[in-house]
């Protein structure tokens, strides 16, 4: 290691004929500092994640597991110790199913249309720009749209502030995500497969249905699961369309239309309601509900990541 005297450095810099100074020790030191700063940034993000999860677990765990599974099987109540998350949990499942039913066929269909049937047309470009814009629209704006369209204009069908309106809202919200995921998955399928199909005289739809779609399916599924996990964490648009916070019944399964048109609540909204109460007992309830919510989300995310890693490995093999 060569030590460079600071005075020497100063003289060199101020001299009229500036001589090149490699000054490596100094530069390597800056390098290490920079790398440490970059690592620190990642660590801060992870530390916050750990603190967040830790705080929720410590606060909510005792509540969740006193008289287990009472917390999961009781309705919300004015008394914190008796309140549970049955109706929000069931509401979340209703919304998950409805959103999937509405958003997956339309999103995948639109993705197929844009990638396979209308690739590189003016229309596809227009829709692409439009989807880019939609992805940046705040979710609460979707809530306002839904309030106007699904709750007011379509009230005879949806029954106003109902599960059905909520499902339609979330489906619109995640539609752009599913479309983008579908397109990316389809783009990754080699075009030789399509050409082989065409050479055998199949139509475009037959090629897509029998050959392209099966290969792209894991990718589409990954994107779809991530989109759905975003949907069940949403709060703002559902507050806007008037999901209630105190529901002491479950939507009936038969007749189905009755269930679809009944009012509802979901886990994030129940959580929000409990957070905004001053008593600490309700905040313990909120933490316990968050544990349930995050468990569901983590399971969905883990499935998606697992699927993606597996397909990447297959592709690499």
């Amino acid at each position: 290691m060569t030590q460079i005297e600071p005075q020497n450095l100063l003289q060199d810099r101020t001299a009229d004929s500036p001589q090149f100074q490699a000054n490596l020790p100094e530069r390597y030191r800056a390098d290490r500092l920079f790398q440490a700063a970059a690592l620190l940034a990642v660590l801060i993000a992870l530390a916050v994640l750990v603190m967040l999860l830790g705080d929720v677990l410590i606060t909510g765990w005792p509540r969740l597991f006193t008289d287990f599974p009472d917390f999961l099987t009781s309705f919300p109540s004015r008394r914190a110790a008796q309140a549970g998350i049955l109706s929000p949990l069931v509401g979340t499942i209703w919304l998950l199913v409805l959103t999937a039913l509405f958003a997956i066929p339309t999103g995948v269909g639109a993705g197929i249309f844009l990638e396979e049937f209308a690739a590189n047309t003016r229309l596809a470009q227009l829709i692409e720009i439009n989807i880019g814009n939609l992805a940046a629209v705040p979710s609460i704006i979707y809530g306002l749209l839904a309030l106007q369209v699904f709750v007011r204009w379509m009230e005879p069908i949806t029954g106003g502030r109902s599960v059905l309106a909520g499902g339609l809202t979330l489906a619109l919200l995640v539609l752009p995500i599913i479309i983008v995921a579908t397109r990316e998955a389809l783009r990754a399928v080699p075009s030789s497969i399509r050409q082989a199909g065409f050479a055998l005289g199949t139509t475009r739809w037959q090629v897509v249905r029998d050959h392209v779609l099966p290969i792209a399916l894991p990718g589409i599924l990954t994107g779809t699961i991530l989109a759905l996990s975003r949907a069940i964490g949403e709060t703002a648009p559902l507050i806007t369309i008037g999901a209630l916070t105190f529901i002491a019944f479950l939507p009936p399964l038969s007749p189905l239309i009755e269930g679809l048109r009944s009012p509802f609540t979901v886990l994030p909204i129940q959580t929000y309601n409990w957070i905004s109460r001053p008593q600490p007992e309700f905040q313990n309830n909120a933490a316990a509900a968050i544990i349930v919510l995050i468990t569901v989300l983590l399971l969905m995310n883990a499935t998606a990541i697992y699927l993606r890693n597996r397909t990447q490995q297959i592709r690499n093999d």
Binding site: L52, D55, G233, E234, T271, I275, A287, I290, L297, N301
Partner: peptide
């Protein structure tokens, strides 16, 4: 990605309580 997937209501709880 997990950090990105945390619902905003949970972040709100974290901000207020922690």
């Amino acid at each position: 990605e997990i950090l990105a997937g945390i619902p905003s209501v949970v972040h709100g709880y974290f901000a207020l309580i922690f």
